[in-house]
């Protein structure tokens, strides 16, 4: 019996749990809990430890599927998995959610996290949610990755469809399993496991949507404002949302002192952006001290975010949260 292993990783909501559920012959072991805090009210459940499933590919070969938790606060699990359970996996599949503001930022982040792990392993980049957001397209990915010096397979999949996820497995194992009938396996999966399409929980209450050209998902995303997301993130006590012109769009920072300090920080950032752009993009400015809340400003072309965080939070966490939040507000 040949046993193979594949590890799935990627940002929150990229479809790791769904992909594994699509393929697995056994009841998948997932450790999803309701999303309590943090940015992610867009979804109802998030994986807190890991996902595991098994696919009997043939009488003589079996595939073990593992998925990491997506949220940054469970990052210790990634290390644990890499050094133990999946130290002998054949491939890492990076799922990339195409609806994110900057999917390439995610790619950079995960490739950096898994750099050592990838030394002896195949990497597949699988783009999900492209039915909701078609751009960037395949050609764009290939070109951008080439620019980053990354030459690897990029597939567009829908994690809810078993035959679609199977394409990923095929590109990892086709050479190792030359006799396997992939089409037949795909048909078996589709027959026994209809696509995992979750229903909206409140759907019975919801009024019938008026006819618009916008797909319903888009509405769901924008219903969660950046401010809401920030206020549901661990350790964040206040937030300020700024536009492309670095003017305040919305703020809920209670303390006048913090409010004023954040504004001077934004002014500084705006001035630097004008004067020293040749040194590169200004990503963030953080102010901290043992006796005061941490204040930070995160900057992107189209918007910026000011945060007030508990001083106990590590700067690495503050930074990760700020960057994640900017990714979340799809506009």
């Amino acid at each position: 019996m040949a046993d193979y292993k594949i590890l799935f990783t990627g940002s929150v909501c990229s479809g790791k749990t769904t992909a594994i559920r699509s393929l697995s012959d056994i009841e998948t072991i997932d450790t999803d809990a309701s999303v309590s805090d943090s940015a992610i009210r867009r979804k109802q459940k998030t994986t807190i430890a890991m996902d595991y499933g098994v696919l009997e590919m043939s009488d003589s070969s079996r595939l073990h599927l593992y998925g990491t938790p997506g949220q940054e606060r469970f990052r210790f699990m990634w290390q644990l998995m890499m050094s133990d359970l999946v130290h002998d996996a054949q491939a890492l599949v990076l799922l990339v959610d195409n609806t994110r503001n900057d999917p390439f930022k995610d790619i950079r982040f995960y490739l950096d996290e898994f750099r050592d792990y990838l030394v002896q392993r195949q990497l597949i980049i699988a783009v999900t949610h492209s039915d909701q957001q078609a751009h960037p397209d395949h050609a764009y990915y290939m070109n951008e990755l080439k620019g980053m010096g990354i030459f690897t397979t990029v597939l567009f999949i829908d994690a809810r469809y078993p035959d679609s996820v199977l394409e990923v497995v095929k590109s990892v194992l086709a050479e190792r399993e030359p006799d396997l009938n992939w089409d037949e396996l795909g048909q078996r999966l589709m027959a026994h496991r209809p696509p995992v399409i979750e229903e909206e929980e409140e759907s019975s209450e919801a009024p019938v949507a008026a006819e618009t050209s916008e797909p319903p998902e888009v509405k769901l995303f924008s219903a969660v404002s950046l401010m809401d997301a920030a206020m549901n993130t661990r350790g964040i006590t206040g937030a300020m949302h700024l536009g492309a012109d670095r003017k305040v769009l919305e703020t809920n920072i209670g303390s006048m002192q913090n409010q004023a300090m954040l504004k001077t920080m934004v002014n500084l950032v705006a001035a630097l952006e004008k004067k020293v752009a040749f040194l590169g993009h200004i990503d963030n400015l953080v102010l901290c001290g043992p006796e005061h809340e941490t204040l930070s400003v995160f900057v992107e072309e189209r918007q910026a975010l000011g945060l007030c965080s508990e001083k106990e939070l590590s700067l690495a966490v503050v930074k990760q949260q700020g960057q994640d939040l900017l990714q979340w507000s799809g506009e």
């Binding site: 002192q257 913090n258 953080v286």
Partner: peptide, 30 residues
């Protein structure tokens, strides 16, 4: 850039009495 940024930041810290004593600015690769 560091000179301009940090003299401005810490001037405002003392003006607003926020007790911050540390600042980090990420710009380009630095």
């Amino acid at each position: 850039v560091a000179k301009k940024a940090f003299s401005y930041v810490f001037q405002n810290v003392s003006k607003l009495r926020t007790k911050h004593d540390e600042a980090h600015l990420e710009i380009g690769g630095k």
